[in-house]
Computed example of a mutant assay.
Amino acid sequence: MANIKSARKRVIVNEQQRVKNQAFKSSMRTVIKEYEKKLNNNDIEAAKNLLPLAVQKLDKAVSKKMIHKNNAARTKSRLQQRLDAATQ
């Protein structure tokens, strides 16, 4: 453990932020998995309702610099492509 007071505080704050980031990433992945599960079960309407939520979570992760913007763009594109393929 650090000896300097500010360094001790940074350790605590970093741990708190790590836990918050971990929880947010987990919720983002959960929404994406639910979306894919709906598509696999041919529940197109439910998938259409989940897509905006998944996109919102991805955009928020980019704004918080949790994931790279190209990673989010690629993921959103793939999610949309799967929906388009399922509706045709």
Score class of each variant (00 low, 15 high):
40 N>G: 13
41 N>A: 13
13 V>P: 00
48 K>E: 11
46 A>N: 09
87 T>M: 07
10 R>M: 15
29 R>I: 08
30 T>D: 14
70 N>T: 04
33 K>H: 04
49 N>P: 15
17 Q>N: 12
31 V>P: 00
24 F>T: 05
14 N>A: 08
47 A>G: 15
78 R>E: 08
37 K>R: 11
32 I>P: 03
82 R>D: 09
32 I>Y: 02
51 L>A: 02
17 Q>A: 11
40 N>H: 04
47 A>P: 13
10 R>G: 09
50 L>V: 03
43 D>K: 07
5 K>F: 08
86 A>I: 07
26 S>E: 13
3 N>T: 08
32 I>W: 04
15 E>T: 10
1 M>H: 13
73 A>E: 10
36 E>R: 14
66 M>P: 00
19 V>M: 09
38 K>C: 15
78 R>S: 10
68 H>E: 06
72 A>E: 00
67 I>D: 03
63 S>W: 02
29 R>K: 08
48 K>T: 13
54 A>M: 01
7 A>D: 13
48 K>I: 11
17 Q>D: 11
66 M>S: 02
52 P>Q: 05
37 K>C: 14
72 A>M: 01
49 N>R: 03
4 I>M: 08
85 A>N: 08
9 K>H: 10
59 D>C: 08
6 S>F: 02
56 Q>N: 08
25 K>A: 10
35 Y>I: 14
72 A>H: 00
70 N>H: 04
50 L>E: 07
12 I>C: 06
67 I>P: 01
29 R>S: 04
27 S>R: 10
50 L>M: 15
63 S>A: 08
40 N>F: 15
72 A>Q: 00
47 A>Y: 13
36 E>C: 07
31 V>R: 11
79 L>I: 03
